[in-house]
Nucleic acid binder design. Sequence first.
DNA 1: CACTAGTGCAA
DNA 2: TATTGCACTAGTG
Length: 494
Amino acid sequence: MLSVKNIAFDSMLAAYLLDPTFRRHNLNEIALRYLGRPMRGDYLALTNGGKLNFAEVDQLQACAYSCEDAETVLELYTVLIRELKAKELWTVFNEIEMPLLPVLQKMEMAGVKVDCEKLKRISVTVEEQLTVLEKQIYTVAGEHFNISSPAQLRALLFEKLKLEPARKGKTGYSTDEAVLQQLAEKHPLPALILEYRGLLKLKNTYLEALPQLVNPETGRVHTSFNQTITATGRLSSSNPNLQNIPIRTELGGKLREAFIVEPDNLLISADYSQVELRIFAHFSRDETYLEAFAQGEDVHTATAEKIFGVAKTAVTHEMRRQAKVINFGVIYGMSFFGLASQLKISRAEAKRYLEEYFKKYAGVQKFIEELVERAKEKGYVETLFGRKRFLPDLKSANQYIFESARREAINAPIQGTAADIIKIAMINLDRRLAREKLKSRMILQIHDELLFECPESEAPRMKTIIKEEMEGVVALKAPLRVEVGIGKNWAEAH
DNA sequence: CACTAGTGCAA
DNA sequence: TATTGCACTAGTG
């Protein structure tokens, strides 16, 4: 038996696929767009400033509107389904988004266990450091001010201390990390600010926020996985966002140690290795990339070899780092200008690097040009599984708008295909766990990584199943590879 | 309280 | 002048 609510939810998914960039926060906007008339309930709510005050609403009228809404939703649903089929989005809807919905629901219900005592211990030491830093900053600055206020910091750095940043955006001076790092060479204050900011961010956003979000019923943190937000088909996570837990710094690692499991359980982390570059290699059919992946090489090292013209054994850490920036930059449609500012090298040098790159990766340039041309003709780009992103701005006469749409056209099929792949893996894994009657649960998805909580006895079996299902989603020209880690917490497992 | 700008965390 | 997100704080109306 289908309920109105179910149909309403399905309609949200359908509308998302029909235009993933359409800003929908409720069915009313979808009804307006596809039926040309509003939802009455939403209409009433809207006229009351967003809050339904039943005392003020004519009860009979409200009942009539409710009945009308039920009909509207049903009609909307049929229109959306027809549209999905017409635009060849039915398969993505039926085989990916719809089956994914109950999987996400289970993950949200399962939640993740957090060690609040550990967070508290970290928080205390961070607070001590912050107190010390604060005093140092006021001493060096010669005055008290709000360090968290970019406006006050700007006044201090650029007016009182007369520091000269390498100019930034149109609207005055920025005090962001790149600027402060550069200013740190001339004055002791910026480095202190950076350290202060980093610690404060960690304390406010994670150390103190997470314990408050532990559900008293389950003793665990339950995020929301949003299925209809992103332009590319990725999920997003909120309340809290568990897709941006720090990892790069030492303190970030400590924080991840606080993501734990129930007694006698283990945490398994499985992540797709270089999935976007593999997809890029698959789409572009570039021989150099495909060869590197076929040989099981480290792809960034391989790129460094080609660009810098040295043997594999001569690739330094710094060369690999720069090659990595180029590999990712290409996926994002980065220009030599952007590369120069990322690598802090001259524009001429950046241009040379990119020229060398395109010479060695001969399939790439042609692929990108054809992709953008096709997108301009068809009005959209699509993923390997047919998810579409419509890009009318590719026809814009405004250079800036066009360039922006061009980058989106390059990135969306890659990021979106990666999203499709992991979604399919999640659906298949969920079925597999049920079929094999395993107690292990999928608990988090972080774009190219899945986290599982499993009884110790199931761990070896799970490791095999996860790798099998994730790598087996699709046979790309550059085959999918998954790295699995096991531990008592997220830091150990990843 | 709603909203924007600035900043910074992740893939 | 590199993509996709979410969340925090300051500041404004």
